[in-house]
Structures are given as structure tokens and as C-alpha cells.
Design a protein around this nucleic acid. Structure first.
Lengths: 150, 150
DNA sequence: ATGGGTGCAAACCATTTGCATAGGA
DNA sequence: TCCTATGCAAATGGTTTGCACCCAT
């Protein structure tokens, strides 16, 4: 469940810089730190969570920049916005296809791959509806850690 | 794709009143109108969309009440909160198990059933993660109506 | 040098909450 | 009657925006 990412951090950073140049995005240290923090994060942090981590290394960064930068990254498909029940949107650097298991008790979001779902034929009704570009499965339940506690 | 609901409006309203009594919720006309509007709606309206429809019949109702009432209904499992990409949460009266196809162009959310997905075995990683209580599939794509336009 | 990126503060928008009143049980 | 639900207004919290300055290119 952990080893979803194909790349280690340094490779991801290199690819990130290339992608920025290709997209005409300036490689500022704010952007580098935001991306690095997100690439290294395993917990689908929110903008504010990221901000609180980055500010330790970059004390002058503003929360606004984090928001703006995440939006920019998303627009250029460098990162993905996660669909959750909460209003507070959360982000991840992982772009490999995967799905989410949400623990309704502790709120943790865990990634998992599900090839048979990815390749499953969609129902006829959907074929008639239009062209499916992306599919995502969200599971809700109680993770073992929480189950043990109660 | 349309005939997901098992019940016509009058049956739903009757069941709704019963459910309220069982849950010790007072049957106010605000609640009746909010539920009726939602039960009749096919477009997963937001709180504000509902409010704008209801106010025509109930000019004194407040948006706060709509929010509060939807939250109450949700708590008592009379309605379901839909997971969408947008920040504005949207609701539906439908509680039959189903999934969503979201058109990224017009934003329409269309329901569909997918039995083979509902019954599919989840990956081993998930079995090890915890106990799955609910599962949902979200498809993103372009609906035929939008495809024709462009 | 120059135009995009950033920090700051203020604005925004969906949603929530405190309080006094009103209306269902 | 009594307590819950409602309306109003103000607060909240996440996110966005206008503006002047700064810094990668």
C-alpha cells in the first residue's frame, strides 16, 4: 500500500523542474519547496498542512502562495486534487493511477491500486451517457488502527 | 439511467414523515418543503439551489434553515451528501446504492448503478487496511450532449 | 529589464453559530 | 406548556484577489 510512487524524491524533483520549464513556469524556491514537501508527503496534506511544514524551512512564505501554487500545479497536471467528503480540499503529488480508502473515524486517506477496477467494463448505461475519461473508486470504512482502539 | 428511484413522490413523502417521527424530528413545513424539493430534484442541487426553489413557495424560509435541515437529514440518513470535486457540497434524496458520472464540461452529475462493482472483491491491500463499509465509483468524462456541441 | 511570482491585507463565499422568537408535540 | 426548529445577523474558515514589490529569465 505504501510503494505506489515509482520515483524517489530526487528524480521527482528533476522531472518537476523539466515540467516547469516546459510549461513556462518559473522555477522559484517557493515552488520547489512546495513541490518537494508534497512529493515527500504520504498523508495527502491540505494547503495549510503544507504551509505549516514549509514555513520551517522558508519562514517568509505565505499561505496565499501555497494556495496559488497548488492551483497552478494542478492546472498543469503536476499534482492531483483529491476528492474527499470534507470541505477542505487536499492534495498529493502522486499521479500514478490509484484509489482512496477513507477511514471515517480518523479521517486518514490511504491509497491503493485496483487494476481489475481500472480495466473493468463500465455498465451499458454509462456507455450511452458519454465518454469516460477518468474513473475513481472511494472506499469508506474503519481502518485497523481505529478498530483496535474501540 | 433515470429510473433509479423506486418510489413516486407521494410515497417518498409518506415514508419521510414516518422516518421523522421515528427519529423524533418535528414535521415542520420547512422540512417538508426541503425534502419534497430534494426528492423531486434530479440534478443533485446544492443548499443554495434548493433554497432558491423553495423560497418561491415558502417566501419566509432562510438559507440557514436549509443548511441546518440538510445536515439534520443527513445525520439521520434520510438523504446523502454527494462527493464532488467542487467545494460546494451537493445533496440528493436518493438513497438507493448508485454511482456518479460527472461531465467535466457542463458539470452535470448523472447517477448509474453498477452491480458488478458493488459486489467486486476489493484488493488484498484493502482487506489488510480495515473494514470497508461503503464504496463509491466516480467517473469523469464528457457527456454526449456536450460532445455534440463541440 | 521586464513580466511573472510573491507577500500582505482585504475580500469572498459557503457554511456555521448565538440568540431571541415562534410553532409543533 | 415546553422544547425544538426557525430567522436573523454576525462569525468562521477555507480560498481568492488587488496591488505593489521582488526576482528568475
Amino acid at each position: 500500500m505504501e510503494q505506489l510512487s515509482k520515483h524517489d524524491l530526487s528524480v521527482m524533483m528533476a522531472e518537476f523542474e523539466n515540467a516547469c520549464r516546459k510549461a513556462d513556469l518559473k522555477v522559484t524556491h517557493q515552488r520547489l519547496e512546495i513541490y518537494r514537501e508534497l512529493a515527500r508527503a504520504k498523508d495527502h496534506p491540505s494547503a495549510e498542512m503544507l504551509y505549516n511544514r514549509i514555513i520551517k524551512r522558508l519562514p517568509t512564505i505565505s499561505l496565499d502562495t501555497v494556495y496559488r501554487t497548488l492551483a497552478t500545479f494542478e492546472k498543469h497536471r503536476l499534482i492531483t486534487r483529491v476528492q474527499t467528503v470534507e470541505s477542505q480540499a487536499r492534495f498529493e503529488a502522486e499521479t500514478v493511477k490509484h484509489h482512496h480508502a477513507v477511514c471515517t473515524q480518523c479521517g486518514t486517506i490511504t491509497d491503493f491500486t485496483w487494476e481489475s477496477f481500472d480495466e473493468a467494463q463500465v455498465p451499458e448505461e454509462v456507455t450511452g451517457w458519454g465518454k469516460v475519461v477518468k474513473r475513481n473508486a472511494t472506499l469508506e470504512g474503519i481502518c485497523n488502527k481505529c478498530a483496535r482502539k474501540s
